[in-house]
Lab assay of single mutants.
Amino acid sequence: AQASVVANQLIPINTYLTLVMMRSEVVTPVGIPAEDIPRLVSMQVNRAVPLGTTLMPDMVKGYA
Rank of each mutant, 00 (worst) to 15 (best):
I32F: 03
Q44P: 05
P33Q: 04
D36P: 00
E35R: 14
A7M: 07
M21C: 02
T15Y: 09
I13Q: 11
P33I: 08
A34Q: 10
V49M: 04
L19P: 15
V30W: 10
G52N: 06
A1M: 12
Y63D: 06
V6W: 02
Y16D: 08
M56I: 07
A48F: 15
L55F: 13
V20S: 14
N14P: 01
A34V: 06
N46F: 08
D36R: 07
T18E: 13
V26N: 12
D58V: 15
I13D: 08
N14A: 06
S24I: 12
P33W: 09
M22S: 00
S42P: 02
T53A: 12
T53C: 03
V20M: 10
P33C: 03
M59T: 08
T18K: 05
A48R: 14
S24R: 12
T28H: 14
V6Y: 02
L10D: 14
P57R: 13
G31M: 02
S42K: 12
V5T: 13
S42M: 12
P29Y: 03
D58E: 14
V45F: 02
M59K: 02
T54E: 02
N8F: 06
A34E: 09
P38W: 07
R23N: 08
S4L: 01
S24L: 07
M22R: 00
V27S: 05
R23A: 11
T53E: 12
Q9N: 09
N8M: 10
A1K: 09
V26G: 05
V6D: 01
Q9P: 00
I11G: 00
G31L: 01
V60F: 05
T54V: 08
V41S: 08
T54L: 05
E25M: 10
P29D: 06
A1E: 09
I32A: 03
P12D: 06
G62M: 13
V45T: 15
A48Y: 12
V30Y: 10
P29F: 03
L17W: 01
S42F: 06
V49L: 13
V41C: 04
A1W: 10
L10V: 09
K61T: 14
N46Y: 15
D58I: 08
V30C: 03
L51Q: 10
T15K: 09
D36L: 08
Q9Y: 10
V27F: 02
A7H: 01
M43G: 04
Y16E: 11
Q2A: 13
L51K: 14
Q44Y: 08
V45H: 00
T28G: 11
S4I: 01
K61E: 12
P57W: 08
T28Y: 14
G31R: 02
D36H: 12
R23T: 06
V6N: 02
Q2K: 10
P38C: 03
P29I: 05
A34W: 15
P57Y: 04
P33S: 08
A3F: 14
V27C: 03
N46K: 09
A3I: 11
V60Q: 01
V6F: 02
L51Y: 13
Y63R: 02
M59S: 08
L51F: 13
D58H: 13
N14M: 11
M21Y: 11
Y63N: 08
T18D: 11
S4P: 01
L40Q: 01
A34F: 07
L19H: 13
D58Y: 14
Q9I: 14
L51W: 15
R39I: 14
M56V: 13
T54R: 11
